[in-house]
Amino acid sequence: MSPTSPAARPLPGSFRSAAVIGGTHGLGRALALAARDRGLRTVVYGRSAAPLAEPGPDPDGLLPRALNLCDPQSVRTASVELPSPCYVLWVAGAFLKKALVETTEDEVEQLTRLLFSGPVLFLRRLLAEAEGPVHLITIASSSSWKRRERESLYCGLKAAQATFVRNLVPELLAAHPENRVTLVNPGGLAVPDFHTGLALDFGAMMDPGEVAGIVWNIAADQRRAFTEVQILRSREPGSEGTPEVSYGARAPQPPEEPATAAGEPAALPIQHH
């Protein structure tokens, strides 16, 4: 399916505000700016939002609020006061490419807090305070179902994020029949700061601004309680990095089987129970 046009347009319905958890860099920033362009009062949560003056807007017209998802005290005390009904975007993320045995205890703890436990605890507070409908837009990753090497922790946390959100839907519908959830699994984005230290061809990756426009148009058109979408980059010659949109979940790819010296897959051992 070809992507929806990313052109900015006003969002229908009664939603007039957006809160972007992790909206200071990369795709989160692009989503925040796109929300602003669609006429939403946009609150941006992030660590680098701290130096900006509150409650006034930053130069881009966004409303910054300091939130450090790796700091339990910050997660407990950051303001969750938002106009209702509102969009809530879970975008915060960081990448780690390391074998698990090479990963430090601190890296495991910090990445888990940033990608999963911190946002879950903060979202718990936001939902408890919401007085009207909430449309939750969750940016997970195609890494939640793709086969990867030396990324077991990152992929596992992204899979946990996606599974958590799918199973949150019945609870949200029980709380308010107009609540909505959009789960987005994007592929590689041209965000060099996200892939620190890796030699990648960012020219063959997706533009965050274009992807942000696609995400918002999907959310604007959503009528069902839950929508899951894959936004993957084309690898066709001449179209490298063009977003390709498809709907529905993907089955996890199995790990590669070990190859024999002749290059044929080795037979898996038979286990007797």
Rank of each mutant, 00 (worst) to 15 (best):
174 A>V: 05
192 P>Q: 04
200 L>K: 08
30 A>W: 02
8 A>G: 03
130 A>I: 01
164 F>I: 03
164 F>K: 01
157 L>W: 05
78 A>W: 02
247 Y>L: 12
22 G>E: 00
182 T>K: 05
192 P>K: 00
185 N>P: 00
68 N>L: 02
200 L>A: 05
42 T>V: 08
246 S>C: 12
3 P>V: 09
197 G>D: 01
209 G>W: 08
111 L>D: 01
124 R>D: 09
177 P>D: 06
123 L>I: 06
186 P>V: 04
221 D>L: 11
125 R>M: 05
175 A>S: 12
257 E>S: 10
79 S>C: 03
193 D>Q: 15
119 P>T: 07
224 R>W: 09
33 L>G: 01
121 L>N: 13
87 Y>S: 09
250 R>H: 14
177 P>W: 04
253 Q>A: 14
167 N>E: 10
254 P>D: 06
179 N>Q: 10
80 V>N: 06
71 D>P: 04
189 L>K: 02
256 E>P: 08
102 E>V: 03
214 I>G: 01
220 A>G: 14
94 A>L: 13
176 H>S: 14
86 C>M: 06
125 R>H: 03
198 L>M: 14
249 A>N: 12
75 V>G: 08
197 G>Y: 02
203 G>W: 01
93 G>E: 09
84 S>V: 09
3 P>R: 07
154 Y>R: 05
77 T>A: 11
202 F>G: 02
211 V>L: 10
77 T>P: 07
175 A>G: 05
253 Q>C: 12
99 A>Y: 07
240 E>R: 13
61 G>S: 09
89 L>R: 04
83 P>Y: 00
43 V>K: 00
34 A>I: 06
270 I>F: 12
